[in-house]
Simulated scan of single mutants.
Amino acid sequence: MTTRLDVLVIGAGQAGLATAYHLQGHGLRFQVLEAGQRPVGAWPQHYASLKLFSPARHASLPGWPFSGDPERYPTRNEVVAYLEAYAAHFQFPIVTGAEVAQVLPDGEEFRVLSADGRIFCARAVVAATGTFRRPFMPEVPGRETFGGQVLHSLAYQEPSPFVGQRVLVVGAGNSAVQIAVELTEVARVTLANRTRVQFTPQRPLGRDVHDWITWARVDQLTLGHLRRLPSPRHVFDPGVYRAAFRRGKLDERRMFTRFTAGGVVWPDGQEERVDAVIFATGYRANLDFLRGTGALDRQGEPVQRLGVSRTVSGLYFVGLSGQRALASATLRGAGQDAAVVVRHLVR
């Protein structure tokens, strides 16, 4: 039997749960479809030592704050526990093990097909799968000939497999630096990137940088504002990352030009043997189930504005990087983006 709903939300990570909160507040009939067995998104897949780059009081979803010290920086496992507790507290109608294979616009409603053959119908769909299940690695010449290990940061868990190795970490963001510094305890590490790392103190004048961002309302800058601003990648440094460079435990170089069978070639032509390369190079939208609907451009990115599809009526997005504001795709931004989308949906 097919159940017809007001809204189907695809994905039960932070974006999907924030959307569920606002849908529930409007009394809409909805379900959340989650491919995994727990409403925690991709968080369990991230490296074990991961800590949020914002304190707990800036990392809560709407209606349910993180417990404990609000000034602490929650770990990966704390975020997982928080998301599960959040879903349980509000008793959202979540269907786990429901991997969405295809979304089909059908007149004034959508038919959503799961990989196991189930069919769900609703008048609106919110794609809240975000990006963190679709890692991006740039094409580098010679990669297919390289005899060492190549992986994305999503597959990195902890440093013990790299003891005594020569390791390159590619990237200039928070995760790249955090992983590189962690690896210096067991390996010889270089951070390779196209843009030098820009460090920002984590706690200027004794307050977390997110306090200042909130006070200055930088979080409220919309996508239009963001397009007019320079976009350097800033790494929030609690005092240990730049110190690793100063102590000589870690160095930074321009991105290598190609792989060889045994290593890489640097821009000056020098070839070096390397055991492993870890790409901390971000993610792309995880929206293959929308192919064929006209909702995506040629690169597979959604054609949308502020989370509202510009090509498919009744289709919405939450959890995209830069979707609406600077904080989009983060825990602290998911609730605000979801609120905007649900208000539009209700109208």
Score class of each variant (00 low, 15 high):
V177F: 12
F289M: 15
V112I: 00
I213F: 09
A56D: 03
G13F: 10
Y86N: 04
G97F: 06
T131H: 07
W215K: 10
V341K: 14
R38H: 11
T190G: 06
R273C: 09
S328T: 03
V125P: 02
T96D: 15
Q304S: 08
A155V: 04
L296M: 10
R72W: 08
Q270S: 08
G142S: 07
V150N: 13
Q165W: 08
Q178H: 14
V177Q: 09
A280Q: 06
E139N: 13
R207H: 12
A172W: 10
W212A: 07
H234W: 13
G322I: 14
R111S: 12
N286F: 07
Q14F: 08
V170H: 10
A88W: 06
Y156A: 06
G248N: 12
V318Q: 09
S153N: 06
A329P: 05
A295D: 01
T129W: 01
T190H: 04
G27C: 01
A216I: 07
G97N: 09
L183D: 00
L168I: 06
Y316Q: 13
P70L: 07
R284G: 02
R143V: 00
G333R: 00
R123G: 01
D275P: 14
Q323D: 11
H234N: 13
T195N: 15
A48D: 13
E109F: 13
G41E: 03
M137H: 12
T96E: 15
D69K: 08
A244T: 05
V167P: 09
D237N: 01
V197Y: 01
A285M: 07
V318I: 11
V125G: 06
G11R: 03
P70K: 14
Y82P: 00
L8N: 05
L287T: 08
E108S: 15
A243N: 12
D275S: 15
R291M: 15
Q14C: 10
F279H: 11
L61E: 14
A12W: 04
P159L: 05
L315K: 06
V170A: 11
A244G: 07
A56Q: 06
H22L: 01
A216V: 03
D297P: 14
F30V: 04
T3Y: 08
E185S: 07
V170R: 11
Y283S: 11
P201S: 07
A327P: 00
R188F: 04
F120K: 12
F110D: 06
P230R: 02
